[in-house]
Design a protein around this nucleic acid. Sequence first.
DNA 1: TACAATTTTATAATGATTACAAATTTAGAA
DNA 2: TTCTAAATTTGTAATCATTATAAAATTGTA
Lengths: 137, 137
Amino acid sequence: MEQTINILKKHGISPSYQRVKIFGYLMETKTHPTAYDIFAKFKSEIPSLSKTTVYNVLSALKEKNLVNEVHIEGHETRFDAEMRQHGHFKCSVCGQVSDLFLTQDLNQILSQKLVIQDIQFNVTGICNQCLTLQNNN
Amino acid sequence: MEQTINILKKHGISPSYQRVKIFGYLMETKTHPTAYDIFAKFKSEIPSLSKTTVYNVLSALKEKNLVNEVHIEGHETRFDAEMRQHGHFKCSVCGQVSDLFLTQDLNQILSQKLVIQDIQFNVTGICNQCLTLQNNN
DNA sequence: TACAATTTTATAATGATTACAAATTTAGAA
DNA sequence: TTCTAAATTTGTAATCATTATAAAATTGTA
């Protein structure tokens, strides 16, 4: 809470109630929620909350490099406050998205010299839990 | 043309006029067009063409593993008939998406054992052309 | 307290995609 | 060749995520 507020301040974002809630949630969760997920999560706790606010907050966080967008499938944009380089895994059975830590720095596998701003590494497959369920049926 | 038709047949897709046109285009282009790009490209040549058809054809091609979807930014879904493993680079200045060939097999950098269906490697940055333009101004 | 700036909110608009059903085309049987 | 059923394409409307806009509420400060 204090920590969340300090990070926001340090990055020039004044810590409004909604911003602290949303950014705090993104820092503690590993579920890579969509804007709608975040809206649904807080709607009962903050009844006045509007979807526009969620989008506004997310876009402010992104602009200050406090969160990354994750694009794995179609339309859905997910958000992640883990800023260290890592990949994402989406299970095509249960739909969950989890972090994927990698054995190598992704910058090293490029074959061309380019000015890089962002690297995303996204894997789709079947998670071990769903695989076990499938094998038992 | 014959080649395009043969590939479609081999994968159990009957080669209708629209399918041959769209798949043929995806095989020869490297621009990673969106559904709308494809629609716009053929609208004058095939005036009856409907956006729904473009989506139908793309989804059939995808189901038979003849094309991959590319998700780099926001909502936009792009299509690619290059099925060998490779990455994508999007220039944040000019917006162009190009292929990125990699120095290493992406399967090898995963730190966990998982059933993998698809791997996407997407880089955002500034292409060399836009970089040169910037430096000259 | 009063006022300006910031933030949040509701509503409407946009853009991509999907659902659906009618129209057209195709393929195969008679 | 003709007829019919199945496949394909098409236009329209619906849906979903996101953005635009402007009013309302909140905050910080003189």
